[in-house]
Simulated assay, not measured.
Amino acid sequence: MKIGILGLGLIGGSLGLDLRSHGHYVLGVSRRESTCTKAIALGSVDEASVDTNLLVTAEVVFICTPIGLIIPTVEQLIAYLPSNVIITDVGSVKTPIVQAISSLWDNFVGGHPMAGTAESGIEAAQRHLFVDRPYVLTPTAVTPKTAVNVVAEIVRQLRATIYHCAPEDHDKAVSWISHLPVMVSASLIAACMSETDSKVLQLAQKLASSGFRDTSRVGGGNPELGVMMAQYNRQELLKSLQKYRHNLDELISLIEQENWKVLEEKLQLTQQARTAFVDD
C-alpha cells in the first residue's frame, strides 16, 4: 500500500519506519527540506518533499502535525486528493478535529496513538514505538466502515492495541490521564521553583531523584503540546483540574487537622486504585 505521512516528527517518522518494515511505500511531506533529507536518510520514508502534491498517489494519508495545524492542513490537502483517499490523524484531542474534518472529507478516521517520548523531531523517530501501546480510533456514525477497517489493519501491523470510542468520550478520558497530568506536573515544578531560599532550592535540585523524576516528567515536556491540549480540550481539562483542586484541598484539610487516620485511609484507596490505570 502507498501511504502518505504529512508531518515528519517523532510520531510521523516512527510511523514511517514501521510501515516501511511491513512493505508499504511511504511518502513523506514536511515544511523543511532538511527534514525531508533526514527522513530519507533514516529510512522513515521512500520519498519526501515539501510539496503536498507528492501525496496525490497515496491510498491513506496520516496527518502528523501539531494539533492546531491538523484542520488547516487537511483543508489545504484535500484540494489535491482523489475522493477515495483515506485520511487519518494522530492528534491527542478528537472532538473538534473530527467534527471539522468529517464535514470536509467523507473518508476521514480520527486517530490517536498513545505513544511518544520526551524527544521531538525526525531525529527522535524510533522503530516499534507503538508496540503494545493504545491506539484509539474515533469513528462517528457516518464514518465509512471500509475506511475504519483499513486504518485498523494498519494499526494492527504496528502491533498497537486498538480501541474504538466516540470522539467526545476520548477527550473526556484523556483529560484525566494525559492532559491533567501535564498541568499537575507543570504545577509541581513551578511550586518547587517558588522556594525563595536559594540554598534550599539548590539542595532540593541536588536531592531530586526517582519520585520527582516520575511526577515531573510530563510537566517538563513540549510547551507547545501542553498549550494545544488546553486550548483544544479546554472544557474537559477545566473539569478535571477543578476536581483535582477539590481533592488537593481535601488533603490540605486533613493535614491541617492532623487527621492521620483518614489521610491513611485515603492513601490506601489511591494505592489500590492505581493498579486499574497502570501495571508496573
Score class of each variant (00 low, 15 high):
T88E: 14
Q157S: 13
L77W: 00
V148Q: 11
E236A: 15
T57R: 12
K38I: 03
P96G: 07
A208P: 09
H22M: 04
V98S: 07
P181A: 09
S178E: 00
L203R: 12
L207G: 06
I87L: 15
S185D: 05
T161V: 13
G211S: 08
F108V: 01
T57W: 00
A166W: 05
D169G: 02
S209G: 07
R127H: 10
D214Q: 04
E168G: 01
I162Q: 11
D51Q: 12
Q235F: 06
S44F: 09
A186I: 01
S209C: 04
I70K: 04
N84S: 15
G13A: 01
T37L: 12
V98A: 07
Q272G: 02
S14R: 02
L251K: 04
A39Y: 07
K199Q: 11
K38F: 00
I177V: 15
I70M: 12
T37N: 07
L180W: 05
L42S: 12
I154P: 01
G226R: 02
G9K: 00
N84Q: 15
W105A: 11
K199R: 07
A173R: 09
G121F: 00
G111M: 01
D18A: 04
Y163K: 09
H164M: 06
L54I: 07
E33R: 06
P167S: 01
A152S: 11
E119I: 00
R133I: 00
E258Q: 15
Q242E: 14
D214P: 09
L104W: 04
A115C: 06
R217V: 01
A276M: 06
I3A: 04
H112A: 07
Q202K: 10
V131C: 08
I63E: 10
V182N: 03
Y135F: 15
G116V: 07
V184N: 02
V142C: 06
K172I: 11
V148T: 11
G221Q: 01
E59K: 14
I162T: 13
S210R: 03
E224P: 01
P139M: 08
L42A: 13
G220H: 09
S240A: 15
S216G: 03
T117E: 00
F108P: 02
V136D: 06
D197E: 13
K206Y: 08
S185E: 06
